[in-house]
């Protein structure tokens, strides 16, 4: 694929994103926002899972911390600007990752996954119990959503779903592009090196624990941004964001979309959104369908949607599928 063609594709994508709300109306626009949030969340998990080979059962910690800190900040700080609330979500998640780092970077495999499960459960229960701060089962809702404003120039009302859509999409696209870039840097090479052979990384002269810590902080921080946007989008945060299910969701999205590619999780999030939307029209048993799809994917297409695409490409064009 040549460069010009790639730019045209990007251009088409941007145009589609801009005119989408006019074509499909606000209901489907909101679905797209939610899809984008989960795409970013899943990509942040895939930095650990697909790139570094670390399975985590507790990434919802960062998603939840991002959401709660944004919600708390907006509830308690009068006149907090929108971007500042987002930044608070990001930084809180980063801080949390920094705190957990010393405990988790030595670990890998099942121990890494299980310790995160424990932390996730702890956060979930603590959130439920600290009613005074977190609102317990009710969560925190109805906090003010500040307008997006550059003083003296522009002020855009973010309670308008259409405007929020544009805002969320811009932030999400920037974050996802940044993470994509992140995987293409020399440091991205170290990540995949750790996945393939962490022991050898040491003997090439990189320090595995420091590298893991950096990846972990990035993965945590951007999950925090996803959680933060989710909180703004729903105008509500609840303990469910810390739930085990919310930790498993990105893993499922990754597997369905394709673990071996940066863009896999985006397709996965899209497929999940599509299935949820389509099946809920015909049946109340959305989860039954999800369950069936998960089993079918893992048995017959373990490399996910993009794996299937590559296989089909290889078959039809009789060449190696690129990833």
């Amino acid at each position: 694929m040549n460069k010009g063609f790639k730019w045209i594709l990007w251009g088409i994508l941007i145009v589609v994103l801009i005119v989408y709300p006019r074509l499909f109306g606000i209901y489907y626009t909101n679905i797209l926002v939610e899809f984008g949030i989960f795409a970013l969340y899943a990509i942040s998990v895939n930095l650990l899972l697909g790139y570094t080979g670390l399975l985590t059962f507790g990434h919802a910690i960062f998603f939840g911390v991002g959401g709660y800190s944004t919600a708390l900040a907006l509830t308690h700080i009068q006149g907090l600007p929108l971007l500042a609330s987002l930044l608070i979500g990001f930084l809180s998640a980063v801080l949390f990752a920094l705190i957990l780092c010393p405990m988790v970077v030595r670990l890998s495999g099942t121990a890494f996954a299980m310790l995160h499960l424990a932390f996730g459960l702890l956060m979930y229960v603590v959130t439920l119990k600290l009613r005074g701060i977190t609102g317990g089962e009710d969560g925190i809702g109805g906090f003010p959503i500040p307008p997006f404003s550059i003083p003296g120039i522009v002020s855009i009302d973010m309670t308008d779903p259409l405007m929020f859509y544009y805002f969320a999409m811009i932030v999400l696209v920037i974050c996802i592009s940044f993470l994509w870039f992140f995987t293409k840097t020399p440091f991205g090479q170290i990540m995949v090196g750790i996945r393939d052979n962490a022991d050898r990384i040491d003997y090439v002269g990189f320090k595995v624990s420091h590298s893991k810590a950096l990846i972990y902080i990035f993965a945590g921080g951007f999950a925090g941004v996803a959680g933060s946007i989710f909180a703004l989008f729903q105008n509500l945060v609840s303990a469910d964001e810390f739930s085990v299910l919310n930790s498993f969701a990105p893993i499922m999205i990754i597997m369905v979309g394709g673990i071996a590619s940066f863009f896999g999780p985006i397709f996965g999030a899209g497929i999940f959104a599509l299935i949820a939307e389509l099946t809920s029209r015909y049946t109340e048993r959305v989860e039954l369908v999800m369950g069936l799809i998960l089993i079918l994917v893992i048995m017959y297409a373990p490399m996910g949607f993009l794996g299937l695409v590559n296989m089909a490409r290889a078959r039809f064009f009789n060449k190696e599928g690129a990833s």
Partner: peptide
């Protein structure tokens, strides 16, 4: 993934 699907 398999057993989570089965659980659902």
């Amino acid at each position: 993934i398999l057993t989570a699907g089965l659980g659902l």
